[in-house]
């Protein structure tokens, strides 16, 4: 029975080096999800795994210096969270795992979802497809919705597509969208000021690293302005947002660890299809709803939620 011991000792001696790239900032719930996933697969940080974290909050270009270090050769895997991927399209030396709201095919890092064919693979959240759905759900919650402020970080890749999808949904639902763009974290406050002046009935916030980082501030802003708010991820809702609809980010990063494990064991990213979320969470914060004075019709909305925050 020497084999398992040998295998163990081999695993113990091999220490994998993973670089983490993110346009968010610490604390990073996505990193936590990924770390949890790695732990669940038997990786122990400091023993057979080391993370090297690179953050450039809201600014993918800020990662270029760190990304160029990937060429130094002792990196087993790079994980890019969200827009950071945009800065990494030129990387060919190491396998790259991504978790993207946009379309990786459009971004040019994979040939197709079924067969990535290169050194990139990971998850896509299909945020684009859900953009319209969020407007619809917001209208279901707040049927009087006529004018919608749309808060969008123009630094976010695919932001224009998302805005386009949102516009189309608004037209069908007879809502007037008010575009409130901003570029990077420094413009958040200004953007909120603009939104406050938009005379909107409700607020839609595109899911993105910057709005994620400032989610509490934005949620509080919405409550203060008496604006029913809609977000992309449940984390916003937990921070006080009225509702959110989208894939569970933490679960996605947790399952991304499965691919990390397979790649570390020698599988090629080219053969690992890009994963799409199966489950979309509809989360409603009833506390916020009460603060806003919104009566949620039990029969038409609440039965559709996956989670209710009370």
């Amino acid at each position: 029975m020497a084999w398992p011991v040998a295998a163990q000792s081999q695993e113990a001696t091999k220490r994998y080096h993973i670089l983490w790239f993110s346009t968010q900032s610490l604390p990073d719930p996505f990193l936590d999800g990924f770390r949890e996933g790695m732990r669940a697969r038997g990786y122990v940080e400091g023993k057979n795994l080391t993370f090297e974290l690179h953050y450039a909050p809201g600014d993918p270009a800020g990662l270029r210096q760190a990304i160029s270090e990937l060429r130094r050769g002792n990196i087993d895997l790079a994980v890019s969270s969200g827009p950071a991927t945009r800065a990494m399209t030129e990387v060919t030396e190491v396998p790259v795992l991504f978790a993207l709201s946009g379309d990786p095919v459009e971004l040019g890092i994979v040939k197709s979802l079924g067969q990535p064919g290169g050194n990139f693979t990971g998850s896509t959240f299909l945020s684009l497809e859900l953009a319209g759905k969020r407007v619809e759900l917001l209208k279901d919650i707040f049927p009087k919705l006529r004018r919608l402020a749309v808060l969008s970080n123009t630094n976010h890749p695919g932001e224009q597509s998302e805005w386009r999808a949102t516009r189309e949904a608004c037209r069908e639902l007879e809502i007037t969208p008010v575009y409130v763009p901003f570029a990077g974290p420094r413009e958040v406050e200004a953007a909120l000021g603009a939104a406050a002046n938009a005379r909107a009935d409700a607020l839609l916030v595109f899911p993105d690293a910057t709005t994620m980082v400032h989610r509490s501030r934005i949620a509080q802003f919405a409550i203060d302005q008496h604006l029913p708010s809609m977000f992309g991820w449940s984390e916003y809702c937990e921070a006080g947002g009225l509702a959110s609809y989208g894939a569970n980010q933490r679960a996605t990063y947790f399952s991304l660890a499965a691919y990390a494990d397979r790649i570390l064991r020698g599988e090629r990213p080219a053969d690992l299809p890009v994963v799409q979320p199966t489950k979309f969470e509809f989360v409603v914060n009833l506390r916020t709803a009460r603060l806003l004075g919104i009566e949620l019709d039990e029969s038409s909305v609440l039965f559709r939620t996956n989670r209710v925050i009370e």
């Binding site: 197709s112 979802l113 079924g114 067969q115 053969d271 690992l272 299809p273 890009v274 994963v275």
Partner: peptide, 9 residues
Amino acid sequence: ISLVLRGNA
């Protein structure tokens, strides 16, 4: 599941 996700290939 990744085998399934490769699609027709």
